[in-house]
């Protein structure tokens, strides 16, 4: 309480009460003064300039990154085609006409500017990753069973839920549902890739990456074209994670890791 008081984080009514209290209570007054003195000392301990040369080094690295990203943007078109080619074996499963029809239905989906949004979050929540993989292994039945309804899940999770780029890669949408993750929510999309005995399930979780961090520390970073994804295995399932424009995507699938990574990279497919 004294800390929040010092930090100016109390509500006005509590602040007034605290002011009165600190005025009459010597212990609390000393507590505040000690906290304040401590803060001053900390500032002195931490103060310090970056070493000579670091600024130039970082500036060069930033400019190199800017050039690299700019080139990546130009290449996005040709690359996207190449990525799709990687799914050649899947596309034979889903008739091209179906894919085209789906593309038509989803043609009106808002385009997002190509740009970089990669792994800047995550680190907490290895448990969450396990929970999501467990949900993939024993999923509840979907609540939304068509693309329109799945897209509608977006309003419950606060980020757009777009099955279309995954469908373009040949994954057949089964449905989706909202998942409660403690105070937040994520959308779960369920896909099938392949048919008959070769059918494999893929669960794709979509969430606000600012609010939910899925622990991806056990996943290895990998570049798929211009996309950066993290890939690994968890409880026998392939797992891939990526982010774009503040939206987090986690895939848990029965496919192999390469296919899962390729599918995750479809997040960057803007057509």
């Amino acid at each position: 309480m004294l800390g929040s008081y010092l930090d100016g984080e109390l509500e006005a009514s509590t602040l007034i009460e605290m002011d009165e209290h600190v005025g009459v209570c010597e212990a609390c007054r000393e507590g505040v003064l000690l906290l304040r003195a401590m803060r001053g000392s900390l500032k002195q301990v931490i103060r310090g300039a970056a070493p000579e040369g670091l600024r130039g080094r970082i500036e060069n690295a930033m400019i190199a990154e800017r050039e690299r990203t700019a080139r990546g943007g130009v290449e996005a078109g040709p690359f996207a085609g190449a990525a799709l080619g990687g799914f050649g074996s899947w596309r034979t499963v889903v008739p091209v006409a179906t894919a085209a029809a789906i593309a038509l239905i989803w043609g009106a989906v808002t385009r997002v500017a190509p740009g970089a949004s990669r792994e800047v979050k995550a680190g907490f929540g290895d448990d969450l990753l396990q929970e999501l993989v467990a949900e993939h292994s024993q999923p509840l039945p979907p609540e939304a069973t068509n693309a329109e309804a799945v897209r509608g899940l977006g309003r419950w999770v606060g980020v757009p839920v777009r099955p279309n780029s995954f469908e373009r890669a040949g994954a057949h949408l089964v449905g989706g549902r909202v998942m409660s993750l403690r105070p937040e929510r994520a959308a779960m999309m369920q896909f099938i890739v392949g048919a008959g005995d070769a059918a494999r399930r893929v669960s794709i979780y979509v969430y606000d990456a600012q609010k939910i961090q899925v622990g991806t520390s056990n996943l290895a970073p990998r570049s798929v074209g211009t996309a950066e994804v993290r890939v690994g295995r968890e409880k026998g399932y392939s797992v891939a994670a990526t982010q774009r424009e503040g939206v987090g995507y986690l895939l848990a699938s029965d496919l192999d890791q390469d296919q899962t990574a390729q599918l995750a990279a479809m997040v960057y497919d803007d057509r």
Binding site: I58, M62, A116, R118, V120, E245
Partner: peptide, 15 residues
């Protein structure tokens, strides 16, 4: 660490 952070900032500047 600082260099990584600034490079990521550059990469994500649209955000």
């Amino acid at each position: 660490l600082v260099q990584d952070a600034f490079v990521k900032a550059m990469r994500a500047r649209q955000q």
